[in-house]
Amino acid sequence: MSLVSTGELVAEARAAGHGVAAFNVITLEHAEAIALGAERAGAPAILQISENAVKFHRGRLSPIAAAATAVARSSSARLSLHLDHVTDVALLRAAHPEGFSSVMFDASKLSYEENVEATAEAVRWGHGRDIWVEAELGEVGGKEGEAPLDAHAPGVRTDPAEAAAYVAATGVDALAVAVGSSHAMTERTAALDHALIASLAAAVPAPLVLHGSSGVPDGEIRRAVASGMVKINVGTALNTAFTGEVRAHLAADARGVDPRKYLAPAREAMAGTVAGFLGLLR
Rank of each mutant, 00 (worst) to 15 (best):
175 L>E: 06
240 T>R: 12
247 R>Q: 10
241 A>I: 02
203 A>S: 15
246 V>P: 00
250 L>C: 07
221 I>E: 01
248 A>W: 01
152 H>C: 07
247 R>A: 11
161 A>S: 15
175 L>F: 10
164 A>I: 03
224 A>C: 00
185 M>A: 12
157 R>V: 05
165 A>I: 09
240 T>Y: 07
155 G>P: 01
178 A>N: 03
227 S>T: 06
204 V>E: 06
241 A>S: 10
239 N>E: 11
240 T>W: 06
181 S>I: 04
164 A>T: 06
250 L>I: 10
229 M>W: 01
218 D>K: 06
205 P>T: 11
243 T>M: 15
170 T>E: 10
241 A>P: 00
238 L>G: 08
153 A>L: 03
210 L>W: 07
226 A>G: 07
214 S>W: 08
189 T>G: 08
166 Y>H: 02
161 A>P: 03
172 V>T: 09
200 L>E: 01
232 I>F: 03
158 T>M: 06
247 R>P: 05
158 T>K: 01
160 P>I: 09
155 G>M: 04
184 A>V: 13
246 V>Q: 02
176 A>S: 14
243 T>H: 14
220 E>C: 05
184 A>S: 15
208 L>D: 05
197 I>W: 02
169 A>G: 11
231 K>H: 03
214 S>I: 14
191 A>T: 15
222 R>W: 02
217 P>Q: 06
232 I>H: 01
244 G>V: 07
172 V>D: 09
243 T>G: 12
157 R>A: 14
215 G>I: 06
204 V>F: 08
233 N>L: 00
152 H>Q: 15
251 A>E: 15
174 A>Y: 05
211 H>A: 14
177 V>W: 01
177 V>M: 00
232 I>N: 02
221 I>V: 14
215 G>S: 12
157 R>T: 04
156 V>P: 02
164 A>L: 09
243 T>V: 15
152 H>E: 13
207 P>G: 11
220 E>G: 04
250 L>Q: 05
204 V>G: 05
233 N>D: 01
163 A>M: 06
212 G>Q: 12
237 A>K: 00
208 L>W: 05
190 A>C: 14
182 S>A: 15
